[in-house]
Simulated scan of single mutants.
Amino acid sequence: MSDTNSSPNGKKILSRRNLFFGAGASLLAAAGHALYRHVSSTSSVKVESFSTPASGKKKNILVITGSARQGGNSDVLAEAFVKGAREAGHDVNVFAAGRERMSACLHCEGCWSTGRPCVLEDNFEKLWPLLEKADMLVFCSPLYWYNFSGHIKCVMDRLYPYSKKQKLRDMPVREAMLLMCGESLFLRSFAGPAEAYRQMLGFKGWKDRGRLFVTGVNDAGDMAEHKALATAEAMGKNA
Results as ranks from 00 to 15, higher is better:
1 M>G: 15
5 N>A: 15
6 S>A: 15
13 I>G: 07
15 S>K: 00
22 G>P: 02
24 G>R: 08
27 L>I: 09
31 A>F: 10
32 G>V: 00
35 L>Y: 12
36 Y>S: 02
37 R>G: 01
38 H>G: 13
39 V>G: 00
43 S>D: 12
46 K>H: 14
49 S>Q: 00
54 A>M: 05
54 A>D: 12
59 K>L: 15
60 N>M: 09
65 T>L: 02
66 G>Y: 02
80 A>H: 03
82 V>E: 13
83 K>V: 07
84 G>I: 04
85 A>S: 09
87 E>R: 13
87 E>T: 09
89 G>R: 07
90 H>G: 08
97 A>E: 08
98 G>V: 00
101 R>T: 10
102 M>I: 02
102 M>G: 14
104 A>I: 03
104 A>E: 12
108 C>I: 00
111 C>W: 08
112 W>F: 06
114 T>K: 14
115 G>Y: 13
119 V>G: 10
120 L>W: 01
125 E>C: 08
126 K>T: 01
127 L>K: 01
127 L>P: 06
132 E>A: 08
136 M>T: 12
139 F>I: 09
142 P>G: 06
144 Y>A: 02
153 K>Y: 08
157 D>C: 10
158 R>N: 15
158 R>F: 10
166 Q>I: 12
168 L>C: 01
169 R>M: 06
169 R>G: 06
171 M>E: 05
171 M>G: 00
172 P>S: 06
175 E>C: 08
175 E>W: 04
179 L>H: 09
179 L>P: 11
182 G>Y: 00
182 G>K: 01
193 P>N: 03
197 Y>G: 10
200 M>A: 13
203 F>E: 14
205 G>T: 08
209 R>I: 03
209 R>A: 11
209 R>V: 09
210 G>I: 01
211 R>D: 05
214 V>S: 00
216 G>Y: 06
221 G>M: 13
229 L>W: 07
230 A>R: 14
231 T>I: 13
238 N>P: 04
